[in-house]
């Protein structure tokens, strides 16, 4: 079934206003299937009815739910693998040297979805760096969606979710099993703070980050939004900090002062040293 142009426009605009996502016409065929469960949860028969109700009522709750349903949340443990190897082999060892004085490491996972990414980071830290036990380690994990953040916070995953990407040895060590639900152990969970942040609005964090993961989310934004978000990330990143984007993402067309570092099979971005920057 295809939606009327008018309804498609309405949904595209709603998504853009709420989340900053740009959905092109070619992607609009996805609307129907993504909204299906919300349609029935709200007691409607068709997407048209849901759209009509949302227009008539102007309900912010309904608008949020629609935006949430249209958003892609796909994620899994140790996604793309190589960034986590880079943390283990290069980046964390360097930070252990350079942060010896403060014994503090701040990490941010922006757009953390259901939490697999920040938990994977925390597991790398606990698994390979016992010397960080007494350090002040903070992983801030943020996302725009309340629903997905609640899931992330619970630390509970289905067998299917842990099957995807979580090495068996780490699963056994860092999760408790209850039937077919696996729950992240407390010593991992307590490294992470979950918070709601909309990347397309302005945000401010008290800490400067040593590592930022901002993966598989910028692809949904307009060029202007990408530019603005990366400028803000740049301001929140320590001068020797590292930014990871998704496996297929790069900043080639954008004007932000990052240098690309390539190491083995992965790349990350570091702020251009200020003496090299043109004013």
């Amino acid at each position: 079934m295809t939606l009327a142009v008018d309804d498609i426009n309405f949904l595209q605009k709603l998504l853009a206003d709420r989340t900053g996502h740009v959905l092109n016409d070619a992607q609009s065929y996805l609307l129907d299937s993504r909204l299906k469960s919300l349609v029935s949860a709200q007691g409607f028969e068709t997407v048209e009815q849901l759209v009509a109700k949302t227009r008539a009522s102007n309900s912010p709750l309904l608008q949020d739910q629609i935006a949430e349903a249209m958003t892609i949340n796909e994620t899994f443990f140790f996604r793309d693998m190589h960034p986590f190897e880079a943390l283990q082999e290069t980046i964390i060892p360097q930070l252990i040297e350079s942060r010896r004085q403060t014994q503090t490491i701040n990490i941010w996972a922006g757009a953390c979805s259901s939490g697999q990414e920040p938990y994977s980071i925390a597991i790398v830290l606990r698994e390979h760096f016992p010397e960080l036990m007494d350090w002040n380690i903070k992983i801030l994990a943020t996302d725009i969606s309340d629903e997905i953040l609640a899931r992330a916070k619970s630390g509970e995953y289905s067998q299917f979710e842990v099957n995807r990407g979580m090495p068996a040895k780490l699963l056994i060590r860092h999760f408790d099993r209850n039937g077919s639900t696996w729950t992240v152990k407390n010593e991992i969970r307590k490294l992470i703070e979950f918070r709601k942040v909309n990347l397309t609005k302005s945000w401010f964090f008290a800490d400067m980050f040593d590592i930022v993961f901002l993966r598989n989310v910028l692809i949904y934004f307009s060029v202007e939004n990408k530019q603005r978000i990366l400028e803000q990330v740049h301001r929140s990143l320590a001068s020797d900090g590292c930014l990871f984007l998704g496996g297929g993402e790069s900043i080639i067309r954008l004007d932000v002062p990052f240098d690309r570092e390539t190491n083995g099979q992965t790349s990350w971005y570091q702020p251009v040293p200020s003496r090299k920057m043109k004013k």
Partner: peptide, 22 residues
């Protein structure tokens, strides 16, 4: 799931890698 696990243990899996520019 299977392919990810194979990759994890360093078994050769020749999967294509497309790149998207931002």
């Amino acid at each position: 799931i299977l392919i990810d696990k194979l990759r994890l243990i360093g078994v050769s899996v020749n999967a294509g890698n497309q790149c998207e520019e931002l």
